[in-house]
Design a protein around this nucleic acid. Structure first.
Lengths: 219, 219
DNA sequence: ATAAATTAATCAAACGTTTATTTGATTAAT
DNA sequence: ATTAATCAAATAAACGTTTGATTAATTTAT
């Protein structure tokens, strides 16, 4: 046989770790980190209690693992947009909003966890990872704004942090109030992914409209 | 002596309960509900461990007590604005934004706690209290919008929930990222209340500007 | 290629803490 | 003489983590 034994083993371990991590992510998002016991996680994942310490070292390091994993993809996405030179400031901002919204909607559980960790500020490893990502967003957005200002399509005084707060805040509020949005707009009969699509459509239009005002350009 | 003995006793008890509640509020806001033990709270408040069960029944009921207390004032404020007939739609929306921002800034700890409870949705008593307040906000804002539409100063299709999400989301994001705001804008030397004033000034201007766009009126 | 040796994975049970809450006695107030 | 407030101590349950034995997988040696 081919000698894929080693890499095959790694894949199996990685898959199991991934499965435990995803199970934990779901529990953390619904019950919270402190209220989710390692027994809860092990039971939900269908593995033995001791496997969590065996694979991750501890409950806390498992959480850190989750943040490392989830933020890797986010960082890559941010860097890619930054390096694309062919787009206009207008297009870049729209893509910026669009990518953020899609990232949140496709990783809703994780963004709930991140929101709570942002409030609590308990684990320094996690705080630093979130700070890094936040600064990445701010740097990228600032570059987009400066580019637009240089080309005289954006207004001069743009408060970067306020603008980003409106983007992340609006999306986050709807993330944690999805049910109210459905209830208020009489869309309780919608499937989960249909509701997500509705949210995506309405939110992109809403945010693009707001950012027109914030950045000062027309159409 | 005057027979104020009874009410005086009540006042003392009430003061002590209030003191414990405020201490708990601070701990819950910084460490989280689950991570704050009743021993932490008792120690920080300088009272015996058993007093918390004695006064509130349990840790959970103490949390509910806090929500009852803090939401009473908020509800009153909402109702008052609703009954004021002398203001224009324009003025009412500005006051609406202003009062919300002031309420958050003056009770920052509680709004941090509320944010986490909104994500977790664990305690049904608290969920219902928050839902009630949320519906109150939505009803009030919808009335303001309809009034403005009838007078032809607001545009026709306004997404109430999206608009409110932008208001609460923007303010909430800045609440949990105050330090980043100060750091990014090189205002680390500012005192706590000076920073709050700066935030208030910039946020009101920012939100009023955005709501111009959302509601469609000019000036 | 097969057997032996080594390493990795899994598990039930137990570990020592920490948790919220209660108890029963003691002190203060009415 | 009651009632309320306070306290140190105890209670039982739950917590994250470790242990030591057992099984499975992989590597090394023959």
């Amino acid at each position: 046989m081919f000698s894929f034994a080693y890499s095959n083993n790694i894949m199996q371990v990685s898959d199991k770790k991934k499965h435990i991590l995803e199970t934990a992510e779901n529990l953390f998002a619904t019950k919270g980190y402190d209220a989710s016991t390692v027994r809860d996680i092990a039971d939900a994942a269908g593995v033995n209690l001791a496997m969590i310490s065996y694979y991750f070292g501890s409950k806390e390091k498992m959480m850190e693992s989750l943040f490392h994993e989830r933020m890797r993809a986010a960082k890559l996405q941010v860097e890619q947009l930054l390096n694309n030179k062919a787009l206009t400031p207008f297009e870049k901002v729209e893509i910026f909003l669009d990518e953020y919204l899609n990232r949140v909607l496709s990783k809703q559980c994780f963004h709930r966890i991140m929101l709570v960790e942002q409030v609590m500020q308990k684990n320094t490893v996690i705080i630093n990872l979130m700070k890094e990502l936040k600064l990445g967003y701010a740097a990228l957005f600032m570059q987009l704004v400066k580019e637009g200002q240089k080309k005289k399509v954006f207004k001069k005084n743009v408060d970067i942090v306020l603008a980003l707060a409106t983007m992340t805040g609006t999306v986050t509020q709807l993330l944690i109030n999805k049910n109210y949005y459905a209830e208020f707009n009489k869309k309780m009969n919608l499937q989960e992914n249909e509701l997500n699509k509705l949210l995506y459509n309405n939110l992109t239009a809403h945010l693009k409209n707001i950012f027109k005002t914030i950045l000062g350009y027309e159409q």
